[in-house]
Design a protein around this nucleic acid. Structure first.
Length: 508
RNA sequence: GGGCCUUUAGCUCAAUGGUUAGAGCAGGGGACUCAUAAUCCCUUGGUUCCGGGUUCGAAUCCCGGAGGGCCUACCA
């Protein structure tokens, strides 16, 4: 079986992780976990991008070496993954030897094939900003904005990668592989970009301008520039492992689809004789309280702090429940609390607690065997079949927001069922018929809880583990076997109480 | 300038061209007491952004317009 190899984009370590980073990790993790549940062999990679001018500058500003600088920040990203319970198998850093070796090997291969050549470029250069400028950077009257300081025309040699020759091939590939770019409408944006002739890609920087990078294997006076370095992580992390390449999924933000992931990366791979990834999934962006996320305005959510306050599953659930994959969404405390209170605390969490409580109170904490089943049980079982059979295909199509809604509707149906059976009344009756109904009701509640919660396993794994724990239930290795309604909880001793999602304390 | 996406209830979202456009939350009324002031039932709420067209039938397809968002190459 081909390994389902899935990656996130690697994060640039020029700052601490924020909500956007957290979302991409969680989304990728949910896909990875779901695929594992569906029986696939999964390999999940994430990591950090650690070269480049901004990092060199930040390090210099602190008076330390770039390596020391990135060594200080990369652990923050690793820690965020742990905090979010991301199930990655590997974490690659572009400053690691294993990565640099592969980058050099690919560059050398392409240089030897004649796909990389040296050329001179003449352009306007800002010494203050240490960058070349384009005409679009000019003011309307043709002058240069003041932030650039003195702008001079200079000539610089660099190495270029021949992109243009692959243009027609790439267009054809995108057109014949509808699953290559997800959501599909994003492919149009790529094709639009490819409608214009491609220029070759500058892949180097002279060392006097940029030191902090991987030296070109064929010219030590230059380092390689961002794309050959960063994109290659997907391959370098698994280059020595069999049955891994090509990647199945690259999960990225919509901002880096065109041109890097949808144009540069496929062409690099093709030129190197490597297979292309099956799919690139471009997700949308979070705004916060309707405003674009930015540090300067101070309106960003600190993921770690959020997890400390509400729990990891609350954040994971909200991110996946609220966003329609591919589109943008807004994050607000109001909306978060609505989801948290109504869906997690009141609906699911309260179902857990009332089930335990009634089982304890009316059956000495032991799940009874069901007696005869009546119409309410039949209705609930039908609701289960519907929720299960609808949500799984939705998850497969990355429509997690809708899938979670369907799954949650079964939790609601279970609460409705309890209301119909009124076990608290049956429990106070001496009538043997009522006692039989009580056993049926308690058994049905527990089983519905076991089944319903299992639909949330990819999104809220530790909460599902807790639910199984308080039911003294140990799940088997095959997820789909967990989705069959039977009496496997009969005789289990349950906990007396469990507050899964405590209601947040009200601010007075 | 060219192009793409988007607009459905107060909010977040559903609806292979096919009953009277549906859920959740919020709002209103009621029931219940096992439970985290919870849960359950009933209910208010729509010119599907606007205007045309195709069709037996349009939220859905086509044309035009409006609002919102985004892309527009080697950032050398």
């Amino acid at each position: 079986m081909k390994t389902f190899y899935i990656t996130t984009a690697i994060d640039y370590v020029n700052g601490s992780p924020h909500l956007g980073h957290a979302y991409e990790k969680v989304l990728t993790d949910v896909i990875a976990r779901f695929r594992r549940m569906m029986g696939e062999k999964v390999y999940f990679l994430t990591g950090t991008d650690e070269h480049g001018q901004k990092i060199q500058q930040s390090a210099r500003a602190q008076g330390i070496e770039p390596q020391d600088y990135v060594d200080g920040i990369a652990p923050e990203f690793k820690a965020m993954c742990e905090k979010l319970e991301i199930s990655n198998d590997d974490f690659i850093r572009t400053t690691e030897t294993r990565h640099k070796k592969v980058v050099c090997a690919l560059l050398l291969q392409l240089f030897d094939k004649g796909e990389i050549y040296k050329a001179e470029y003449e352009g306007y250069y800002s010494t203050r900003q240490e960058q070349f400028l384009q005409d679009k950077d000019r003011n309307e009257d043709g002058s240069w904005p003041e932030i650039y300081g003195e702008v001079t025309q200079i000539t610089e040699s660099n190495y270029f990668f021949k992109l243009a020759g692959y243009q027609e091939w790439l267009i054809e590939h995108i057109k014949t592989h509808p699953e290559f770019i997800i959501p599909r409408y994003r492919a149009k944006q790529v094709l639009e970009f490819l409608a214009e002739p491609l220029n070759d890609l500058c892949i180097s920087r002279p060392k006097e301008r940029l030191e902090w990078g991987i030296p070109l294997p064929f010219d030590p006076d230059f380092v390689t520039y961002v794309w050959f370095d960063a994109l290659t992580n997907y391959y370098s992390a698994v280059a020595d492992q069999p049955d891994m390449w090509p990647a199945s999924f690259h999960v990225i933000g919509k901002d880096i689809l065109v041109p890097p992931h949808a144009v540069y990366w496929p062409i690099i791979l093709q030129a190197c004789g490597l297979a292309l990834p099956q799919s690139i999934l471009a997700h949308g962006w979070w705004s916060i309280n309707g405003a674009k996320m930015s540090k300067s305005t101070g309106n960003f959510v600190e993921p770690a702090q959020f997890v400390d306050q509400f729990g990891v599953d609350a954040l994971r659930y909200f991110l996946i429940r609220e966003m329609s994959v591919g589109q943008d969404s807004d994050f607000s405390m109001e909306q978060f609390l609505v989801r948290y209170n109504s869906e997690l605390a009141n609906n699911l969490g309260n179902l857990v607690n009332r089930t335990l409580n009634m089982t304890t109170r009316f059956a000495d904490s032991i799940v009874p065997a069901p007696a005869e089943l009546g119409e309410p049980e039949a209705i609930l079982q039908a609701a289960w079949t519907k929720a299960r059979d609808e949500s799984i295909p939705l998850f497969e199509q990355f429509q997690f927001n809708v899938g979670l809604e369907r799954a949650m509707s079964f939790i609601t149906a279970t609460n409705t069922y309890i209301q119909q059976r009124e076990p608290w009344k049956l429990g106070k009756s001496e009538d043997p018929a009522d006692q039989a109904l009580l056993r049926t009701a308690l058994a049905t509640m527990a089983e519905a809880l076991r089944l319903g919660s299992s639909l949330f396993l990819a999104v809220t794994p530790s909460s599902v583990a807790k639910i199984r724990g308080v039911l003294s239930y140990e799940a088997g290795p095959v997820w789909k076997d967990e989705l069959v309604w039977d009496n496997r909880l009969t005789g289990n001793a349950v906990e007396k109480t469990c507050i899964l999602f405590p209601r947040p304390e009200k601010k007075s």
